[in-house]
Design a protein around this nucleic acid. Structure first.
Length: 705
DNA sequence: CTAGGGTTAG
C-alpha cells in the first residue's frame, strides 16, 4: 500500500487549485496541465523492502495529520464529489481538529551543517589525498599508498581525506578501512560523504546498500542522506527508488527539509507528473514554505517540457507575489521553457528583463535564445544578439558556437556562418566538430555551393572529423542538384566506409535525386546507392512501371511507409510521385497521391469555406502539386458538368518560396496552369496564391467540351 | 566534488 502521504495525490483535479486559500493569485490563469489528472493514481509503483529493521519511532503528529487527510478527503468513495464541493466553499473544514496546526509536509528549518574545524594538518592531508587520487585504481595499490598516511586517522583527518577522494572506488576503499579499523565511531556524515562520491559514479545500488547498513546499525539517516539517495536514484533514472526513499522518510518520522523536498519535486517533474508536483508544491506552500529559486527552476523546466505556457506564467507570478527574485538559472530555465512553449516574443522580453536586472547571461542563456530566434526565423534578432554578445564580451562556449552555426544554416546566413566557423578554427577550446561541419555543409549545400561543400568534405578527412549522416545528406543533395553523380557516389561510398548508416532522410534525398535524373547513366549510379541503403524502395520504384495491380502497389507502399520515420514519409511520397511524372506514369502518380492522402501525409491539402475552396500544395513537390491540381480540376469539372454548386472563389496556395527548399514551386505551378490554360492567376497582394472565380472555372470547363 | 536540491545542441 502506498503511504498515506501519497494517496493525497488522488485529490480530484478540479479541486486542487482552490483547496488552499492562501494563494494571492488564485484568480489568475492556471497552468493547463493542472487540469489533467488522469494519471495521478498511477504514482510510481514501488517495491518496498522489508522495513522491520527500522526504528519504529513514528512521528505521531505527522502520521496523524496525514491519516486525517487521507480519511477525510481522499477516500475513493462516491461521496467524493460532495466532499469536494464542501471543500471548495469551506477549505478549512478538512482539518478534523481545528486546534491542531495545519499538517506540515516539510520542515522549514534546514539541516545545519557542522561548523568547520581548522585543521593544521590540512596541507599534508591534501597532498596525501592527491597521491591517493593519482595512484592506480586498484585495491592493493591503494592500500600501499595508504600505509604512508602522514597523520593518524582521527575523525577530522579521515573526513578530510574521505571528502576529497575520487573515483568512488577509492572512496569506498578508504571508507571500509576506517570502518573496519574502528578508529572512532562511525557517524552519519561518513556515510553521507561516501554516498556523495558514489553518486558521482552513479552507483545507486551501493548507495542503497550503505543506507540499509545504516538502518541495520542504528545510524541515523538525515536529510542529507535522503537527498543524496534520492538525487542519485533520479540521475540513474530509478524514479521509483527515488519516490520509495522519499516515502520512507515520512514513515520513519523524518520530515524533509526544502532541499530534499525540491529534489523530490524534480523527481516528479522529470516523470512528467505535473499534477503531483503541483500538489506537493501547494502542500509545501500551505506548510509555510517559501520556495527558493531552485524550486522555481524545477517548476519552470517542468512546464517548459510540457509546453505549458500558463504554467510558465504561473511560476513567474508566484515568484513575483512571493518576492523571490529569479537568478541566472531560473531565467535560463524560463527562457528555455518559453522556447518550448513557442513564445519567442516573450522569451525576448524576458531576456531584456534579465539584462535590465543586471543578471549577466551565460552561454546557456544565449544558447536558448539563439535557438528560439532561429526556430522563429528571426534572423535580425539573432544577428543583433550575436552583435551584443561580441560587444559585451558575453561568454561563448562550444555548444553556443554550434547553436549559432545551426541557426545560420537554418536561416541561410552564409557569411555569418563562415565568420563563426573561422572563429571556431582559431579558438583553443571550440574547434569545429562534426556538427559544426554539418551546419556548414548544410549552408553550402542548400546555397548550391558545391565546390565549397566538397572542400569542406575533404577538410574533414584531413582534420579527422567524422562526417555524420546529416552532413552526408546535405552534401549528396547538393551534388545531386549539380548533377555531379560521380562525386555523389564517392561521397556515399566513403561515408558508408566510415560507418555512416543511411537513415530515411538520406534515402529520401537519394530518391529525390532519382526523381530528376536526366539520363540512364546517372540514374543507374544513384539507384546503385539507394540499393545499398534501402533495396525495398528500389524494387518499389521498379514496380511502378508496367501494369502492377493497384492493390499490390498499395500494400507494398503501406509496408514501406510503416517502416519509414514519420518525418520522411511525405518526402518519400512526393519523390515517388515526381518519379512517376518524369516517366509519364501519370495514372500511377494519381494513385500515389491518393494513397498519400489516405495515409494522412497531406493534411489540409484541401480546405473549404462557404466562400472559398483552397488547394494547399505548399508541402508538395512539383510533380505532386501538378498531380493534385489535375485531380482537383477533374473534380471541379465533374461538378460543373453535373451543375453542382461551386463557391465564389477557388484558390491554390503554393507558398511564395520563403523557405529555402520551396523555391520554384510557385513558378512551376504557374507554367503548369498556363499549359492547361486553366484560369488561375497569381495574386499580386499574396504571392504564391493563385485564384480563379466560379465563373472563370465554369466557362473554362465548358470551353473544353 | 570540502556532507544534500536547479539550467545548455544536434
Amino acid at each position: 500500500m502506498a503511504s498515506t502521504f501519497f494517496t493525497s495525490f488522488d485529490i480530484p483535479n478540479t479541486l486542487d487549485l482552490k483547496k488552499h486559500n492562501h494563494h494571492p493569485l488564485k484568480n489568475q490563469t492556471r497552468p493547463k496541465t493542472r487540469f489533467y489528472c488522469n494519471n495521478s493514481s498511477k504514482s510510481p509503483k514501488t517495491t518496498k523492502p522489508d522495513l522491520s529493521d527500522e526504528p519504529k519511532k513514528q512521528n505521531p503528529s505527522l502520521s496523524q495529520q496525514l491519516q486525517t487527510l487521507s480519511t477525510t478527503i481522499l477516500s475513493d468513495t462516491p461521496q467524493k464529489n460532495n466532499q469536494t464541493s464542501q471543500l471548495l466553499s469551506k477549505p478549512k473544514s478538512i482539518w478534523v481538529n481545528p486546534t491542531k496546526p495545519r499538517p506540515s509536509v516539510l520542515n522549514l528549518q534546514r539541516h545545519k551543517k557542522t561548523s568547520y574545524v581548522h585543521n593544521p594538518q590540512i596541507r599534508d592531508l591534501r597532498m596525501f589525498s592527491k597521491k591517493l587520487n593519482e595512484c592506480e585504481n586498484d585495491k592493493d595499490v591503494f592500500f600501499k599508498v595508504l600505509d604512508d598516511i602522514p597523520h593518524p586517522p582521527t575523525r577530522e583527518n579521515a573526513l578530510l581525506v574521505l571528502n576529497s577522494l575520487k573515483p568512488w572506488e577509492k572512496t569506498v576503499f578508504f571508507f571500509d578501512w576506517i570502518k573496519e579499523k574502528e578508529f572512532f565511531p562511525m557517524e552519519t556524515i561518513f556515510y553521507n560523504v561516501t554516498m556523495k562520491s558514489l553518486r558521482f559514479g552513479r552507483q545507486f545500488q551501493l548507495i542503497e546498500n550503505l543506507a540499509l547498513e545504516m538502518i541495520e546499525n542504528g545510524i541515523e539517516l538525515d536529510n542529507i542522506t535522503y537527498s543524496t539517495i534520492i538525487t542519485c536514484a533520479k540521475r540513474s533514472n530509478l524514479f521509483d527508488k527515488a519516490v520509495e526513499w522519499f516515502e520512507r522518510m515520512y514513515k520513519t518520522g523524518l520530515m524533509p527539509d526544502e532541499v530534499t523536498y525540491s529534489a523530490v519535486l524534480d523527481v516528479y517533474a522529470k516523470l512528467g507528473k505535473v499534477e503531483e508536483v503541483m500538489s506537493l508544491y501547494e502542500r509545501g506552500r500551505a506548510s509555510g514554505w517559501t520556495p527558493d529559486a531552485i524550486a522555481f527552476a524545477v517548476l519552470a523546466k517542468m512546464f517548459g517540457e510540457a509546453g505549458d505556457y500558463d504554467g510558465i506564467r504561473y511560476v513567474l507570478q508566484e515568484m513575483k507575489s512571493l518576492g523571490v527574485k529569479p537568478n541566472l538559472v531560473v531565467f535560463n530555465s524560463l527562457l528555455e521553457a518559453m522556447g518550448k512553449a513557442g513564445k519567442p516574443g516573450l522569451a525576448r522580453s524576458l531576456f531584456e528583463e534579465m539584462v535590465a536586472a543586471d543578471i549577466a547571461p551565460d552561454a546557456k542563456t544565449l544558447t536558448s535564445l539563439v535557438k528560439i530566434y532561429g526556430k522563429a526565423r528571426w534572423a535580425r534578432d539573432a544577428l543583433d544578439l550575436w552583435q551584443r554578445m561580441k560587444s559585451n564580451g558575453w561568454p561563448m562556449d562550444f555548444i553556443l558556437y554550434n547553436t549559432l552555426l545551426s541557426m545560420c544554416a537554418d536561416l541561410g546566413l552564409q557569411e555569418e556562418a563562415e565568420k563563426l566557423f573561422d572563429d571556431m578554427k582559431g579558438s583553443d577550446n571550440c574547434k569545429p566538430d562534426s556538427w559544426s561541419y554539418t551546419a556548414m555543409l548544410n549552408i553550402y549545400g542548400s546555397g548550391g555551393h558545391v565546390d565549397k561543400a566538397m572542400t569542406l568534405f575533404d577538410q574533414m578527412s584531413k582534420e579527422n572529423v567524422a562526417v555524420n549522416v546529416m552532413g552526408c545528406t546535405c552534401l549528396i543533395q547538393c551534388l545531386g542538384r549539380a548533377k555531379r553523380m560521380d562525386d555523389l557516389v564517392t561521397v556515399f561510398e566513403t561515408s558508408l566506409k566510415k560507418g555512416i548508416r543511411p537513415d530515411d532522410r538520406l534515402c529520401g534525398c537519394l530518391l529525390s535525386v532519382v526523381s530528376y535524373c536526366e539520363n540512364s547513366d546517372d540514374l543507374d549510379k544513384v539507384i546503385a546507392c539507394l540499393q545499398q541503403a534501402n533495396p525495398r524502395l528500389v524494387s518499389f520504384v521498379n514496380s511502378l512501371e508496367g501494369n502492377t495491380e493497384f492493390e499490390k502497389v498499395k500494400e507494398e507502399f503501406k509496408g514501406i511507409l510503416n517502416n519509414t520515420e514519420v518525418e520522411a514519409r511525405r518526402p518519400f511520397c512526393n519523390c515517388l510521385i515526381d518519379i512517376c511524372r518524369k516517366r509519364n506514369l501519370d495514372e500511377r502518380a494519381h494513385e500515389l497521391l491518393y494513397m498519400g492522402t489516405m495515409y494522412g501525409l497531406y493534411p489540409g491539402l484541401h480546405t473549404k469555406t462557404s466562400e472559398e475552396w483552397r488547394l494547399n500544395v505548399r508541402s508538395l513537390s512539383v510533380g505532386a502539386a501538378h498531380t493534385a491540381f489535375e485531380e482537383w480540376m477533374g473534380t471541379l469539372s465533374g461538378m460543373v458538368n453535373r451543375q453542382e454548386p461551386l463557391p465564389e472563389l477557388l484558390s491554390a496556395s503554393t507558398g511564395a518560396g520563403t523557405h529555402k527548399y520551396s523555391q520554384g514551386l510557385a513558378n512551376a505551378f504557374e507554367s503548369h496552369v498556363t499549359k492547361l490554360s486553366a484560369p488561375f492567376r497569381q495574386t499580386e497582394e499574396k504571392p504564391g496564391v493563385f485564384v480563379a472565380s466560379r465563373e472563370d472555372i465554369m466557362s473554362w470547363v465548358q470551353s473544353k467540351v
